[in-house]
């Protein structure tokens, strides 16, 4: 695959993925398990001793490279999708069943369990406690690049808002790749998000909040107040991350360098909202608009979720795709 906006979407996603704080926690998965156990113990230490000095991912006797800024789960699952999207989706996921060396979202892990017990799509994505998360929305970037529907892929792991999020991202990426217009990309996404769904309601709410603020960074508190309920224990719901990405894409006029930092400031959504924002704005502005300094660290995958992708270069990967 070639084209400045196509490469912009993929590298843009990797940049956003790398910019969010959870990336280092995902990448620390490359360290020995005891290293992460020590991290949990330091968290408990801070609680017990009432010290506000909180642990960060660290390397005790471990290589430091995984903790350098770089992409993690979202970039790897997008790369996996780009590499496997030629095969029927249930089969592509079934090939992962039984592997004990991969890491994935709750929706994907549960879908693999469902496939193992004979629950096929769409039930594999529906009978799923995280059917609403944005795992499929991240993979949908690959479908948007080709102007294809993400449904067959999305339904393996998601349903409801999770499926709608995938459709919205695919539609927005396709429009951005075709026109470069952030406004048109967001309109294309809204067109597939019914107003009476949580994701459709939230998308319009987020856009109104961002428009009122008039600036991506300025919109952060308004998005937090309007969008986040801060009740649930995980921040990867498509009804939250996709609207945040759409709103920041529009209010930034499609400028990755303004939109992604703001997304990374939505701490609860920082695992994937920056990545989705990076994909949309990267598609709008193209590869050439991505800040030079981010490209080198973002283009190489770590293999923290799919070990076979360790060291994979995203630009080379795209060149190898027809």
């Amino acid at each position: 695959m070639s084209g400045d906006r196509i490469a912009g979407a993929v590298i843009g996603l990797a940049v956003g993925d790398a910019a969010g704080w959870p990336a280092a926690r995902h990448r620390a998965a490359l360290h020995a398990p005891w290293s992460r156990r020590l991290h949990r113990e330091l968290d408990a230490f801070a609680e017990e001793h009432r010290v506000t000095t909180l642990p960060v991912p660290f390397a005790l006797n471990q290589p430091t490279a995984p903790l350098a800024v770089g992409p993690s789960d979202d970039a790897e699952w997008l790369a996996w999708t780009l590499l496997t999207m030629g095969t029927p989706r249930a089969g592509a996921f079934r090939a992962l069943v039984g592997r004990d060396d991969i890491r994935a979202r709750v929706s994907v892990a549960t879908a693999l369990d469902n496939l193992a017990r004979g629950v096929e799509p769409p039930a594999s994505g529906h009978d799923n406690p995280h059917h609403f998360d944005d795992a499929a929305a991240v993979r949908a970037v690959a479908y948007g690049l080709r102007g294809a529907a993400p449904d067959e892929d999305a339904q393996v792991t998601n349903a409801g808002d999770g499926l709608l999020g995938a459709r919205a991202v695919a539609a927005a990426v396709a429009e951005a790749v075709a026109t470069g217009s952030a406004a048109k990309a967001v309109s294309a996404a809204l067109a597939v998000l019914p107003e009476d769904t949580a994701i459709g309601h939230n998308a319009r709410l987020a856009l109104a909040a961002a428009r009122a603020a008039g600036d991506p960074f300025g919109a952060v508190p308004a998005l937090d107040a309007a969008l986040l309920d801060h009740v649930y224990s995980y921040g990867v719901g498509a009804a939250l991350t996709v609207p945040a990405a759409l709103a920041l894409t529009e209010v930034s006029g499609g400028e990755l360098g303004r939109a992604v930092p703001a997304a990374a400031c939505l701490a609860a959504l920082a695992d994937s909202a920056p990545a989705l924002t990076g994909a949309l704005t990267g598609a709008c502005g193209g590869y050439g608009a991505i800040p030079e300094g981010w490209i080198t660290p973002a283009r190489t995958l770590a293999g923290c979720c799919l070990p076979e992708l360790a060291g994979k270069d995203l630009i080379e990967l795209l060149k190898g795709l027809s």
């Binding site: 949580a198 309601h201 309920d229 009740v231 649930y232 995980y234 719901g237 009804a239």
Partner: peptide, 11 residues
Amino acid sequence: PLTGLVHQHGW
């Protein structure tokens, strides 16, 4: 029904 839809523990 939005009150039951917008939070993420509807099920």
